[in-house]
């Protein structure tokens, strides 16, 4: 079988896998952003319990491999509770918590990187603490965060491949199925690599455009 026949034969399955990869990425990153924002606010809260929850999330996410987190959620917790969830749901939970933990650190760093003089200037004009945070600090923190957030998105999109181990037929899992049938490892992984690369490349282009658009430098 030449390369083009292989491509023709396996492309539908790979595209289907890529579709699932994109779905898993989008849903997970959506929840990861929410978790990240909430957790970063908790991390900067005056309440010691909220701060502790944030610290625990970040420590666990950082301290254990995503592979272990996925297994733990899909087999460990479901086994303990005697319930069954889909691989997609388990993957979403694992990736959301994982990326959410990292994003919360990125958001906290961004907020703390805003010049303290900005808060002082806003308060000296009479703006309340809330008005200062939402009108002055957050808009600047977002700009500071963009490169690191996009970086985390890229990592998480690629990390969806790890979810293949719990049987979700996303792109990497699809590749394994194709190779099991065709024994064409080199060409298949080359195609799969190219597909991941294109997704990340397009995202990076978009990010660069947005970054330029909101830049404050002349």
């Amino acid at each position: 079988m030449d390369f083009f026949s292989l491509l023709q034969e396996s492309l539908p399955m790979l595209l289907q896998g890529m579709g699932l990869t994109l779905q898993l990425s989008a849903v997970s990153l959506f929840f990861a952003m929410i978790i990240g924002i909430v957790a970063s606010l908790m991390g900067m809260s005056k309440n010691i319990v909220l701060r502790a929850i944030n610290k625990a999330l970040v420590a666990v996410v950082r301290g254990t491999p995503l592979l272990v987190q996925a297994f733990f959620i899909y087999f460990g917790i479901t086994g303990l509770l005697g319930i069954r969830i889909t691989a997609f749901l388990a993957g979403t939970i694992a990736l959301s918590l994982n990326a959410g933990g990292y994003l919360s650190e990125i958001f906290r760093g961004g907020i703390q990187a805003v010049d303290p003089g900005q808060r002082e200037a806003a308060r000296s004009l009479g703006l309340s603490a809330g008005q200062t945070t939402w009108r002055i600090i957050i808009p600047q923190a977002i700009r500071i965060c963009i490169p690191s957030v996009v970086n985390q998105w890229c990592i998480t999109i690629k990390d969806t491949s790890i979810i293949s181990v719990i049987g979700l037929a996303e792109l990497t899992n699809a590749a394994e199925s194709i190779i099991a049938r065709t024994y064409r490892s080199f060409e298949t992984w080359l195609m799969v690599g190219a597909m991941y690369f294109i997704i990340i490349w397009l995202l990076t282009l978009l990010a660069r455009f947005v970054e330029k658009k909101v830049s404050l430098d002349e």
């Binding site: 003089g117 900005q118 002082e120």
Partner: peptide, 20 residues
């Protein structure tokens, strides 16, 4: 305190304009 600060303008060494 916010209302009281409205009546006291302040100018800083490093300007602290809102860059966004």
């Amino acid at each position: 305190i916010d209302e009281l600060r409205e009546d006291v303008g302040m100018v800083f060494q490093h300007f602290n304009l809102f860059p966004h």
